[in-house]
Every structure is written in structure tokens, then in C-alpha cells.
Write a protein that binds this DNA or RNA. Structure first.
Lengths: 180, 180
DNA sequence: GACGATCGTTCCGTTTACGGAACGAACCAT
DNA sequence: ATGGTTCGTTCCGTAAACGGAACGATCGTC
């Protein structure tokens, strides 16, 4: 079972070659074996956290640069196809009557992202931190500047876009009443 | 050999206990052994990337929520009376079993804000957007840079402060189980 | 062409992370 | 008390990640 497809290997190799250093040199400066680094880049090993820290440190990048999100966390919820919105699922809270999903959202400028209606009763709550966000029901979107907070019912088609040239950063909290 | 001080163990245990699930249950749902999870939380093991993904997936959090940058900066801060934290209450959600409060928080640099313990079971969840925030239990605070997300149990004394000269902006979500 | 250096991969013995099972402790029922 | 359940830790055999040392390939340099 190859199992997980995190593709750390190719990302790591790209980072290394972008710096123009050899596998041997990186292994030496990271204090790990060449065999380990080779296997890591080829994807034939399942590295240890300690190994990852050693490599990330030697490359001078945060560990998160190596272990960027893989395929996708469980989060079926809000990830809409298209390039305008990317979201990271941070926490999920399960209540008897509802599910809360807390996400961090980035909206790129110049594109209007359409999202199909969610189940009845679903509400979305957005707090903007950077850029100016224009979001909400497709026929009556709301606008929020940094520090402002808007929310709407998500059971109708809704959109995400920015106002102005800058991308928008926001917290998105989705409340979904439990089905049945 | 303490060697690396990533402190994944305590962070993981906090995340797990914030959800009220047992070690056995989490190990089962993550498809890993209890021994593995126990050793991970105790810090006696050097986990494999595959193990980390399994645990993060079962918790419903991104991997980066577990492997935040290690090396807590010393951050000897001066405690000056006065409000370091200003917060705006944005939304309140009432569930049969819990209350959720969504706030926007601003933390000024140079001051450590102490907060008394809340009721048992209260958890706080913070997403940082600007500055570097140092917050959490007074005896074991966590550090989060922009884009990162941390959470902790708030039934012990906890603190908020910044790392570095800039003020920190963050979303704060407080979950309070209903008293019964 | 021969040589030395370095490249990335493979081989292999050692170390250790893995999960199943056993453990004592705590809890709840009868 | 007693049996049954679940808790988190420890024990232990197995699987695999680790680094050192080979290996062939690819270079410049003489």
C-alpha cells in the first residue's frame, strides 16, 4: 500500500535543487545519512519527525513548507473548485444539533467564486482581516473591510470575491444544523 | 534525551482532551495503536509522518496544527497593568450542550495579559492573522504566527501576549459546555 | 585514456517506531 | 465485595527508518 500521497519527496527535491546544493551536501549539513535523504526524496521512506526537522532546518524553511497540506483533510464542506478561494480547515466542533467548522480562507482578487447552495439552515460567518471581501448571497452580496464581520444563510447560491486589487484573508465559521 | 523540544505531545493531548475523547478512542479512529498514541503524547517517541497524518486526520485538524514551529522564544515580557487585549464580540451561538462565542481580538505588544480560569470544559481556539501571538495556559503557553491556529483548555489561568514588537490580530472562538 | 572527486542509489547491520496484548487503576453496576 | 468495562501505561516481537559503507555513473583535469 503506497497509502499516503503527500509528495514530500518531489517538493523537497525541488527546494534542494533550487538552492543548487547536492543531496550529499544537504544530508551532511542536516546531520542525516545520505541514504535517508535519498529515500525521502524518492518517496520510499516514511520519515520521522526528527528527520523532517533536520532537513527543514538545513534548508532554512519552516517545517510547514515541507508538509504542506496533502490531498485534503476530511473537510468536504467548503472547498469549492476554482482558484479564487482556498480554505484550510482548522477545527470541527460536533454538537448534538449542529456541526461547526472553523476555517481560514484566502480569496484571490479578480475572480468571482460561485458556491452552490448548502443544506437548509446552514449559516456562514466571516471575519475579514485583510483586503476587502465581497461575499454572501449571489443576488445581494455584502461587503466587509478588515475588522468587519458579516454572515448570511448559505442555503442559496452565494459568492466570494474581493473589492480592489488585494487578496482577502478571513475567518470562516460554518454552522450546519444536523440532518434528520 | 530531550534534544528537540517540539512539545507536540502536550499540544496533542490538549487537542484531544478539548474534544473530550479518550486516548483509546482516538487511537482507534486514527487506526494506530494505543501504545503509539500514548508514547506520542508523553513525548517518548519520535513519530513518523504517517502517524502524524493519521492523528491529525482523526482530530480533523491540519497537520500544521500539530507541528507548529518548535523552539518557544524566551519572550521575557514585562507585566504592566493595563489592558493588553481588546476584543469585540461578533456572534454568539447557543446550542443545547454548549455556547460558542466568536470574537475578534487585538493584543498589544509588551504586555502580558492574564486571564483567570474559566469554567471546566471551556476551550479557546485562536487563529492568528497578524503579529505573533503567545497565548494559552500560563504555565505552558503556545506560540502562533500568522495563519496558524492554536487551542487550549481555559479552565486554568491563561495568558495572552505577543512575541516581537508588533501587535497581534486574531480570531477567538470560545466554546463553553452548558453547565449541568 | 587514467585518475580523482563527487554525484545519487543501493546494500546492510543497528536502532527504534510500530501495534497487539497484558497490566494496574478507576469507575459503575449489581 | 465482585464482575465488567474503560481508562492510560508498559511490555515485547516485528517491521522499518536510520546512518555507514559500498556501488556505478558522471564529471573535470591532466
Amino acid at each position: 500500500m503506497h497509502g499516503r500521497e503527500t509528495d514530500i519527496g518531489s517538493r523537497l527535491r525541488r527546494l534542494r535543487e533550487a538552492r543548487g546544493i547536492s543531496l550529499s551536501a544537504l544530508a551532511r549539513s542536516a546531520g542525516i545519512g545520505k541514504a535517508t535523504l535519498s529515500g525521502l526524496e524518492l518517496g520510499t521512506r516514511n520519515p520521522t519527525l526528527e528527520t523532517l526537522y533536520a532537513v527543514a532546518g538545513a534548508l532554512g524553511v519552516p517545517l510547514t513548507a515541507l508538509v504542506l497540506e496533502p490531498g485534503a483533510p476530511p473537510a468536504e464542506a467548503v472547498h469549492v473548485p476554482g482558484a479564487a478561494v482556498t480554505a484550510t480547515l482548522l477545527e470541527v466542533f460536533e454538537e448534538p444539533t449542529a456541526t461547526y467548522e472553523l476555517l481560514r480562507m484566502r480569496v484571490r482578487p479578480g475572480i468571482v467564486q460561485h458556491s452552490p447552495p448548502h443544506a437548509p439552515g446552514v449559516t456562514e460567518h466571516v471575519t475579514v482581516y485583510a483586503g476587502v471581501l465581497r461575499a454572501g448571497p449571489a443576488d445581494a452580496p455584502l461587503v466587509a473591510a478588515p475588522g468587519e464581520h458579516i454572515s448570511w444563510q448559505a442555503d442559496v447560491p452565494h459568492i466570494y470575491s474581493t473589492v480592489g486589487p488585494d487578496e482577502a484573508l478571513a475567518t470562516l465559521l460554518i454552522r450546519s444544523p444536523r440532518q434528520g
